[in-house]
Design a binder for these strands. Sequence first.
DNA 1: TACATTCATCGTCGTTCGACGATTAATGAT
DNA 2: ATCATTAATCGTCGAACGACGATGAATGTA
Lengths: 109, 109
Amino acid sequence: MSTQARQEPCEVVDPAGDITLPDDDTLAAMMKALAHPARVRIIRVLDERQACVTGDVVIELGLAQSTVSEHLRILRQTGLIQGEIEGPRTRYCISATGLATLKAGIAAL
Amino acid sequence: MSTQARQEPCEVVDPAGDITLPDDDTLAAMMKALAHPARVRIIRVLDERQACVTGDVVIELGLAQSTVSEHLRILRQTGLIQGEIEGPRTRYCISATGLATLKAGIAAL
DNA sequence: TACATTCATCGTCGTTCGACGATTAATGAT
DNA sequence: ATCATTAATCGTCGAACGACGATGAATGTA
């Protein structure tokens, strides 16, 4: 039931080095990924608990499992989070570089 | 009122003082407003040319007038830009506070 | 071998978005 | 007055979104 979060951090490699500014389309896509309250909340949840699995997010958001899985997919495909399979479950965490790219793109507006 | 609109800055009042962090819904709404390449471009255009009227943006984007007017409405309603009527045309400019709120909200993620 | 657990994917359905042309309102010019 | 210009609004239509339940694949356990 609960997550026994241990093991190494989800973010295996992410030097957070040189961040290239995204172009309009990429920036708009990242914005679109966060253009939904549920996905903003997911980012906050992943920030609080360093990392957690899909089931935890489902409980936290109170939405259907398939709905949450879809939101996670969108965030993953835009590079804002990353998930690694861990047995029968998937552990998600924030992508430092992805989020940094978004922040840089916004800040440059 | 208004009228005798000169070419003074569009941003009449905008101290850019205390910026309150937006909640999830507000932040998501601002993201949604910029979750489209055309609207990101509008922000850039308004940034380059301090301010310009609808027709200028129409030419710059190459979209139908009604389409651009709709994009401008969305940005205006979320408080990211502001427009003031100037005779038969409307002059738009970036809202410093609106954009600052967005930047603060993202940076706090 | 099952069987349960976890999560991604699929199918559906109603809502919203985004584009456009047409229309309307307001202003300026003739 | 009439006409032209500018921009917001309206109506439409196809595409995408967002929610859900159902299904399926992968893993762990008895």
